[in-house]
C-alpha cells in the first residue's frame, strides 16, 4: 500500500506502523461519573466497519507523524490522509 503523507508525499506503507481506529483519539475524561464505562468502550469496543475506516498510522521510519488515514477496508482504497494532531485539535482535545 502507499500512503500519501500530507507533508512528505506518497510513501510505502511499510514505513508506517498501524495502531487502529482513529476513535482512539477520543480518550474519555477520567473524572466523568461513568468513566469506567467510557474507558471500557474506548479501550475495547470497535465499529470495525466493512467500508470506510478512519485509522491511525505512525510514520516511524519517517517524520514520526501520527496520521489519520481514511481507507476502505473492503478495497484498501485510501481517500484521505490527515495529520492526526490537526484532527485531534479539531475534535476538541484541549490540552
Amino acid at each position: 500500500m502507499i500512503i500519501n503523507h500530507p507533508l512528505l508525499g506518497p510513501r510505502d506503507a511499510a514505513e508506517f506502523v498501524y495502531l487502529g481506529d482513529a476513535s482512539l483519539i477520543d480518550r474519555p475524561d477520567w473524572q466523568d461519573e461513568d468513566a469506567m464505562d467510557q474507558f471500557h468502550a474506548y479501550g475495547y469496543l470497535r465499529d470495525n466497519p466493512a467500508g470506510e475506516h478512519k485509522e491511525l498510522w505512525y510514520h516511524e521510519q519517517g517524520d514520526r507523524s501520527w496520521l489519520v488515514v481514511t481507507r476502505n477496508t473492503l478495497t484498501h482504497e485510501i481517500t484521505n490522509v490527515e495529520i492526526a494532531r490537526d484532527v485531534a485539535r479539531a475534535r476538541g482535545r484541549d490540552k
Binding site: G20, D21, Y44, R46, D47, N48, A50
Partner: peptide, 16 residues
C-alpha cells in the same frame, strides 16, 4: 463477526 453483530446493534471487542 463485526458485520453480523452489527445487525443486532452490537459493537464488539474485535477488529477484522
Amino acid at each position: 463477526s463485526g458485520r453480523v453483530a452489527a445487525m443486532a446493534g452490537m459493537r464488539l471487542p474485535i477488529e477484522s
